[in-house]
Each structure stands twice: as C-alpha cells, then as structure tokens.
Design a protein around this nucleic acid. Structure first.
Lengths: 257, 257
DNA sequence: CTAAACCATCACGTTACGTCAGAGTCAAGC
DNA sequence: GCTTGACTCTGACGTAACGTGATGGTTTAG
C-alpha cells in the first residue's frame, strides 16, 4: 500500500496558495517540473513536489529570486547560508536607501506644506501667475485645513502696506546676501542676512531650527526652487546651505553648550 | 540677444547624468518631448527641457513612477503633495515589510549556523546520508571557522558511546513529547520534555533563550524542518512552538519578575 | 573625402508572473 | 451517446524602466 497521492495543477495550486499560472511558470523555467500523464499531457504532482514547492515559496518569501532559488535547491552543495548572508546585505542596503528616501520625502512634504506660503510669497518669482492661482486654490482645498488656515490667517492679517514691505524685505535679504557672499558663509554680514531670513520666514509660519536646514537643502535639491535661486545667483543655493548650517550650529551651541 | 542654448541628446544626457536611451524612453512615453530639427529629425532640447528633466529626476529619486511624475508635471492642479503623502505611506509599508523580511532572514541565518549541528545530529532524519555528508563538508569550509570549529570540537570530544546516547536521547525526547501532547503545552510532562530538549541542544551549542523561540518558529516555517516534524507527528511543530513559548516565558519570569 | 562620432528607429531582453485566446479533455446528467 | 461545464494544455502579449545591440542615415574633424 503505497502513498501515491497525485495532484492536478489546480489542486496543488490551491493547497499551496498560488495561481495555476505560477505553477506553469515554475515548470517552464525548470524550477518545478512534474511528470506528465502520457495520455493527455496533464501535469501530475506528487507529494515530493508539494514539499519542494513549499521550499520554493519559503525562499521566495525571503526575497530570493527564482534563479537563486533554483541554484539553492538543485545544487547539492546547498549554498543557502551564503546566499542568505549575501541577500541580507542587499536587504540592509535597500533598507538604508528606503530610510533616506523616506527622510527626503518627509522633509519635502513638510516644506511643501510650509511653502504653500513660501512658494507663493517668498519665491513666487519661480511660478507663473496662473500656475500660482491654481496652485493656491487647490492647496487651500486639499491640504490639512487647520494648518493652512492658520498660516493663511497670519498672512492675511497684515495690511497691504505690510505685505508689500514683507515681500520687499524678502528680496532685499537675497540681494544683500549675494552682495555679502565674497566674505564667506560664516562672516558677520552673511550671518546677519541669515538671521533676517529666519525672521522673515516667521511672517509666514513658525520654523523649527532643523527646518531651516531642510529648507536650505530643498533650495538645492528641488529643481523648481533651485531654478529660482540660480536666477538670482548661480551659487546662491549652495552658499545658503553653508551659511544656514553655520547659523543653526551657532544657535544650537547657545542652547546646549 | 536671446538665450537659445540647444542641446543634443548626448549633451543633455551627460549634463543630467542619464543615458541617451533614457531620454529616448522619456520621449517615447511622452514625458519629455523635445522639438525636432526638421532637416534631420534630431531632438533639440532647450533650457526649459533641462529644468523639466531635473524635476523628473528629482521626483524619480523620491521613488515615484514615471506615470505619476507625468501626472504631477502635466496636470496644472499639481497634486504633488497628495502624491507624496500617498507615496510616503507606500514607502513606510515597504519599510515595515523589509524589516520583517530582514528579521526572518536573520533568524534563519542564525539558526542555520546553529543547525549545522542541529540538522546533522538532532534532525538528520530529514536528510539522506549523502546529502548530509556533502552538507557538512561544505559547511565546515564555508562558515565562520571559529564558530564551526568550536561547535564541532564539542561534538567530537564525545565518545562514540556518548554520541549514540545523545542521538538516542534526542529521539526519545520527541517520542515522549508526542506522547504527552494530549496533556497540553503547559502541562508538567510537556514542559519537562522541553527542558530536556533545551538541555539536549547544549550538546551541540549554547542556545540563548530567544533562540529557542526562533528555533521553534523555524521548525514551523522552514519546509525542510517542517517535513521532518510532520513525519513524526502532524501537529508536533505547532505544538512545540506553544510549549517552547510557555517554557521561555516561565524562565524569563524567574529572571526578571 | 573619408572615417569617427553621433543621430535615428526598430526590436528583443529583463522579473515573475496576470490575463486572455483557442483548443483538447474529463466527469456527469439526460 | 451527447451536451455541458469545469478543467487542462500551449502560446502569446502586457507589465516598468530602461539596457543592449542592429541597421542605416548625418555631421564633423582631419
């Protein structure tokens, strides 16, 4: 009395929780080749095939490619451990990359939210007016209403006179900053400009210290912002990053010496 | 005097640090379509194209698909923030998944290292002898030499008599365990078996408490191990997981009440 | 004027299958 | 014996974002 359970494709597929197509595929690439019924060409899987399939799925869960899985299962020297160790490194690298990505995305989101104001008031030179109008309208509708409303309220609370003054001040800061560039990012004149820039931002929202760094980064990384800065001066964006870095470090030094 | 710098594909490609093929591709999918020179059909990129390309690459860096990038750039309602927030969630999910994967891989590696011994002595029922021999030979060559040598030294230090006794004890433990299963995983009889199992493992290496849990998991997850356990009793592997969990919790309770 | 370098358009390869399409096969009910 | 529905088979195309030639026309430096 021999145990000779045989499964059809569909049976094995439902047992293992994969699609029939997947089994066809594994057959086609030589990963799991069942014998055929000579009379009709049907695939007949046996219990050993089920076990092998489970191994395949286990290794696939670990993220190995089907090629690698075939090597692992078919080579008698069974390089599983080495393969896994190599794979672990790849996973770690992907994780590091993901972390960096998330960080950048996160910062971009934060500053995009802050810069609903920023881009429209501080940096509107980079956008056409129609773009600007549509942009703002959409923004007010879509984004976290409290934040936006708070932020907009502050801006709207200013008189037209003051609005104009603020925008003029913004332009003046960048003009002065460019003029002071030859003296170096840590020079008193430049640092005074950065201080004014920091004050200036508070007309729109309350920036955190680290936020300043991220913002300066964004000026360099985001082509839209970067284009605006390049128009003013080709080296302005990287220069600001340096200057803001010095500025923030000094302020943090004061808070926790 | 108009600034009308024009770039050929190769020029733009080298400026932006992408391949010519990539620009062809972006043209083909309508992401970046430059006007053509009517005389020869060459692509002529202008400065605006360069800026747009930089935007594309920035968003690509964030992991957005080219489809999504096209939507972001071509729709005037500029859904970038919403897209990024959605994308952030996807990234977080991928990160969670990666973390789980790494965890499993890590545990598998650890136990595979421990189970160079385990699988050959404790669980060799699941392997053919030739497989076993090749496996061990490879293992000794490939894996961290100190660990393996230490581990092997311990095993070799035993007399043949003791070796046989250890293997017999291993089989006896599982037999007793299966017999005690009806009394439940927390029952004294079962817990005594687990204690014996724990002792038994120390014949091969020095297992950490958490390692026991991972090992019991592996008995369930890895089809090779699982197959061995199913042969002994279909419910043995999941049952052991429960029993080991109780065992470890009680021991930890003693150490830090 | 020629050869190198550059341009163009197909078009197939990559991963791990999904998704039809067309045709043969099997078991069951009438 | 025949129809019907469920199942099987083998192609073959589609996916994302290009890489990698193949083939042929164009520009440019010497």
């Amino acid at each position: 009395m021999v145990t000779d359970t045989r499964y059809t494709v569909r049976q094995l597929a439902s047992i293992a929780g994969v699609s029939v197509r997947t089994l066809h595929h594994y057959d086609a690439i030589g990963l799991l080749r069942p014998p055929r019924d000579p009379s009709n060409g049907y695939r007949r899987y046996d219990h050993a095939a089920l076990l092998r399939l489970q191994q395949i799925l286990f290794l696939r869960e670990l993220g190995l490619s089907l090629d690698a899985i075939r090597d692992v299962l078919d080579r008698p020297d069974f390089d599983l451990l080495a393969a896994l160790e190599q794979h672990r490194e790849a996973l770690r690298e992907r994780q590091r990359r993901l972390a960096r990505l998330l960080d950048t995305v996160e910062r971009t989101i934060q500053h995009l939210k802050g810069e609903i104001e920023m881009s429209s008031h501080d940096l509107f030179a980079g956008f056409s007016e129609e773009q600007q109008a549509a942009y703002e309208e959409e923004a007010a509708r879509r984004w976290d209403e409290q934040t936006v409303r708070e932020s907009n309220r502050r801006w709207r609370s200013y008189s037209d006179e003051k609005k104009r003054a603020i925008l003029d001040e913004g332009r003046a800061i960048y003009t002065d900053l460019i003029a002071a560039m030859p003296e170096g990012p840590a020079s008193p004149r430049v640092q005074d400009c950065v201080r004014r820039w920091h004050e200036h931002l508070r007309n729109f929202y309350e920036p955190a210290l680290e936020g300043l760094l991220g913002l300066a980064d964004l000026y360099n990384e985001d082509p839209q912002f970067n284009a605006t800065f390049v128009k003013m001066h080709p080296d302005l964006a990287p220069f600001m990053r340096e200057a803001v870095k010095v500025y923030v470090e000094r302020l943090q030094g004061h808070r926790e010496p």
